[in-house]
Amino acid sequence: MKHKTFLWFMLPSGFAMLLFIALPIMSVLVQSLYIEHEKVLIEVENCVPLGGCTKETVVDTEAAARLKAEQPLGQFNGFGTYTNRNHLATAEIAGFWRSTNSWAEFGKQVYGLPFYKALAFTLTYTFLVTPMVIILGFCIALAVNALPRMFKGLAIFFSLLPMMVTPLVGSLILYWMIDSRGVLGQTLQVIMADPDLSLRASPVLTWIMLMVYGTWSSAPFAFVVFYAGLQTVPEDTLESAMIDGASRWERVRYVVIPYLMPLVTFIALIQLMDNFRVFEPIVGFSAEASATSLSWIIYNDLRGEFQLFGSAAATSMLTILGVAVLLTPVLIRTWRDFKGAKS
């Protein structure tokens, strides 16, 4: 395709992304390198209802405005925000390394740091949920594809339900169902023969619960993509495979799966990325005590009384970096495909 034609085709999409994603990412990157101005604190008297008057500290807004006019971005801090205790915590880790004697002890100390605690869950979640979603989605697609035509529409609709009900309420209802007194929680207690079993109280069970929910809610996505892909499997190839005496399994293994491989790459890409940014289930299931993720840390910085934009910006950049590292194998594969397609 000619450069000029390409440009015209790409223009609307490219412009939208440039304006609403590229620019903000640049500004976030710049923001992450700065910290706020030194706040001049003054002591004043505050009076509030019922409480009476007390000495309180406030920010000298005039001094703050003056500093802001001089340096609108704040104080340059380089990568200081990235390395501080609430992010990569390089100094703390070096300290733990010197003060601990065993790997277990070192690991426990590092796990106490918010970023690494979140990273541990994020990575576990990403690496378990992604393959489970792909496998489950593929199996559902095969099964639905084998249904008689009249049932397909209904099966597709029900399979899409986990994706359609908003996670906000979906997780609220599921959360209630798995409560130790809810319908699923009670059933589990009977199955496990443990009347005190509570999925919400134990960190391990909370992790499992979040991952099961993640698989459940993302499987429809993989299902739909695979299902659409299955419709386009070339029949001549299947036929010739049958004539060659390939069994059903062999046909799936050597014809269908290779044919769907680009879709697997695609789903893996999207799922790795989405799972690395896992957030909604944590809030929906009130799981903050046992499981936090990088996106949750950003949320925690941005929501509430005091918003730490610089800190959120640094975590966001680290998230992007993390996604880039995760995707490297997939990217290399795409690059090869790309080169292969060219030649």
């Binding site: 910290i35 706020e36 101005h37 030194e38 706040k39 604190l41 704040g74 104080q75 925000t81 501080n84 205790r85 609430n86 703390e92 918010p114 005091f306 730490l308 610089g310 800190s311």
Partner: peptide, 13 residues
């Protein structure tokens, strides 16, 4: 205290 101090430094306090 450590988490607070890191955040308060970022906020200029």
């Amino acid at each position: 205290e450590a988490a607070y101090t890191a955040a308060a430094k970022e906020a200029g306090f």
